[in-house]
Design a protein around this nucleic acid. Structure first.
Lengths: 215, 215
DNA sequence: ACCGGCGCTAAGCGCCCGCTCACCCTTGCC
DNA sequence: GGCAAGGGTGAGCGGGCGCTTAGCGCCGGT
């Protein structure tokens, strides 16, 4: 009713749901710092400083430094599940849905590289409980992609020998974008998304898509 | 002349070239600790403890904690270049050489996951000079794979629209194995290597390999 | 038998970490 | 205007960090 809830276009700004404004600024500062230097190398003083506050202010909104990472990780993973679920539920052939899933997932990793890096690579910095919770979300991510591939195999659109292994490889390819993508590099997130969608369609042996393969 | 220099089989034990025995034990302990907890979360006391020595002993063989990471990273990257160079220089079709490069590179990441994790994911923990040196080795890694793909395109064996982007994707796929591979999981490094070689041949549109694609 | 030197340790220095606490402004309600 | 409440601050705590230093035991050479 009040502020910043609209998801009109599709992405809007990602952290609209974090409600006290100071808490959001702190979270955003933490994302930047964690992405640049890693969780363990980031100090609470650094996070507070980036948010324009004193070190003590952090502990009004978050119990510990780890809670910051936990919150970031959960929100990020929920977004990832949402992206893949949306692609999986649209209408179209398995090939179209897989291409949609891969290109939007890659766009998210490339465009929001800062967030994605923290979400994908700082999992081990969480304690056992938080870690276990996040692993549940990762299983959902895997299940969405595997579902599309399985359906393509059943319908004969895909030719895949090892469905679980190929699913893993497809996700791995998308996730690793967060490691190497460079905002100042030669490619836009959209271009990488398209390239990767083509590559993945080839990986699953999709008929009649991507490259010229019609006799 | 004296000890442990033979590379007979191909891999032997990886750290044979680190000469004072205590220095090698420290390096091995550092690899384990960095892989488990990350560079910044690892203490020099932990490294020395794993090697069965006092904290001060570390500084007899290494100037700083960062020098340990630097040494590990350089040795690992040199091994990576060597693996790819060997595959690129063998005789055979581009498809055979690419499959060889991918499967052996993946085997290295999966089998030596501990080392590979440190080598591939702790680059940013190095200082600017060491980082720049390692980036040079990474450029060699990229060049080896790109060379094979370019040759396959020239000979008409491969069908690739974006050579640089595809090279990046192939390497990315292999490297990310170090993140997810689980020694207690269902796949051996050899199996993953074969699966990935097939997937990569499909990515480059190789004719007459891997899956049934003959009319 | 002596001894120089190397590999190693016990102790500890100075620093900065995550986090706490006592207190202070601002704001909104009566 | 009084005042409770909540967001914010300055100072600082206990502790663990990377790294140093003084000195000890062992070992090969003569």
């Amino acid at each position: 009713m009040s502020t910043a809830e609209e998801t009109a276009g599709g992405e809007a700004q990602p952290w609209g749901e974090v409600t006290p404004d100071a808490a959001r600024r702190l979270l955003l500062a933490a994302v930047e710092a964690f992405a640049e230097r890693g969780y363990h190398a980031t100090t609470t003083r650094d996070i507070a400083g980036r948010a324009g506050m004193s070190p003590a202010a952090l502990y009004i909104h978050y119990k510990t430094k780890e809670e910051l990472l936990h919150r970031i990780s959960r929100i990020g993973h929920e977004k990832a599940v949402e992206i893949l679920r949306t692609a999986a539920r649209t209408e179209g052939t398995p090939a179209e849905r897989l291409a949609d899933a891969v290109s939007s997932f890659v766009r998210w990793h490339a465009g929001g590289r800062t967030t994605a890096k923290v979400v994908q690579y700082e999992l081990d910095s969480l304690g056992p409980d938080a870690r276990a919770e996040i692993l549940g979300l990762r299983r959902q991510v895997d299940a969405e992609v595997r579902g599309i591939i399985e359906e393509g195999v059943r319908s004969g659109d895909f030719d895949v020998a090892d469905v679980r292994g190929t699913t893993l490889a497809v996700l791995s390819l998308c996730i690793d974008v967060a490691r190497w993508f460079n905002v100042d590099g030669p490619r836009t997130p959209e271009e990488v998304g398209e390239l990767y969608a083509d590559l993945v369609l080839r990986m699953v042996g999709a008929r009649g898509d991507g490259a010229v393969r019609r006799p």
